[in-house]
Design a binder for these strands. Structure first.
Lengths: 221, 221
DNA sequence: CCGTGCATGTTGACATCGGGAACATGCTCT
DNA sequence: AGAGCATGTTCCCGATGTCAACATGCACGG
């Protein structure tokens, strides 16, 4: 009983995809109902059958951008080669941080969009719309499951912090609130570099900034 | 030879002021040319005699909001009562950080606006339009001088970090890049709380987050 | 002391956007 | 086969940023 082909087939998904594409180069302000409609070959106002308003669409697009960020994080952490468990845990945390900052600076539009839509994070999750059978279709991979293969950046960071505690790199009593410290630091630098007063920082200064922030995070945990 | 009363007198300043007022409750998107015009009793398009376009006006308004942030920082640091120089330096840094976060959460609109306009920070400053005589008028205080009484948050933070080094609380070799670490952390938390996924965090969690971030910054320097 | 010039503000128009209302179309189920 | 409703379209509106042409009044040169 999936949501199946009516007139267009899967307009909602197509529109989100188009929105993500537009957001990539133009940021959130480029996610314009009429442009999205044009892009999927549908007249504007068609969006209103799938989204309450522009903000609703933007929230869905933002989730898509967030998924892209999560994907990059996963890729980078998977690349870590390290034998010592403690070193590996630290390296993975650094990989996550660098992925975050790199994503922000190279995928400007996606980053700004990811944090423009609503969707608060902690607490609310998994209200579960009881998806029963995972269909065989070679998944689009866009939906973020809450399982082990999630692309949710928040969850990814949390797991890495857990690993640091598990291997004894970080004292357990520091764990509560640790994600706030780590997340804030990388997000702050990213925001300042992308939108903020550090926008025009030269490349070498950017590197210094990233290194300093990541080192400070490690010391601060 | 100041810029003096033509038709309106000081339309530019009035418009920036109006913009700041609008931004306070509505954020950057509330800084609308027509609304600003209406507010100062001037028809729209008048702005084009003083600003290149909306973005230009928004940048000026953003500077005004930034000044408000700086003012709060100054007020809070001035309130610090502490005898030991080292403790005092730390307390002042914390005061700055709390001011930043409090400003973001209580002055939602101002905060978002302050970081929406352009104006990159380091390097460029003080191109100096050679203001000669500081008039006697009980100053509006809106212009940020580069002097000792600046309200520029960036400069304020830098000074506090200098003090920490001066009293020996922070090793000098950590000074370069230190403002990136401190600024990023508080800005990141602020951004996440105001606009981002932490938007709906309950009050006690917000406090935990702020405490954790500030403690981590202190340890990380 | 007067008139010209330019800075300042106004009016009108246009394209684009988000959004509402009424209408058309074609799956899907009885 | 026919009815009903989800889906998409068309027409419309007010608001907004921006351009072009126009009006006005202060300042400065003669």
């Amino acid at each position: 009983m999936e949501k199946r082909a009516y007139h267009h087939g899967a307009l909602r998904e197509a529109m989100v995809e188009a929105g993500v594409a537009l957001a990539r180069t133009g940021g959130p302000s480029a996610v314009v109902l009429r442009a999205v409609g044009r892009r999927v070959g549908v007249s504007h106002n068609a969006a209103y059958r799938h989204f309450a308003d522009r903000e609703d669409l933007l929230a869905a697009v933002a989730a898509g951008c967030m998924t892209e960020l999560g994907r990059l994080m996963l890729r980078r952490t998977a690349e870590v080669r390290e034998d010592d468990p403690v070193q590996r845990a630290w390296s993975r945390l650094e990989a996550i941080g660098r992925a975050y900052i790199d994503f922000a600076t190279t995928e400007h539009g996606w980053f700004r969009t990811a944090f423009s839509g609503a969707t608060a994070h902690p607490g609310a999750a998994s209200k579960a719309d009881g998806r029963s059978d995972p269909p065989s279709g070679a998944g689009s991979g866009t939906e973020a499951g809450a399982g082990a293969d999630t692309t949710d950046p928040y969850v990814l960071l949390g797991r890495q912090l857990d690993e640091l505690v598990a291997v004894g790199a970080v004292p357990a009593e520091r764990r509560p609130g640790a994600h706030y410290a780590a997340w804030s630091a990388v997000h702050g630098l990213s925001a300042l570099l992308v939108d903020g007063p550090l926008r025009e920082l030269p490349e070498d200064e950017r590197r210094l900034a990233a290194d300093t922030v990541l080192a400070a995070v490690a010391r601060g945990l």
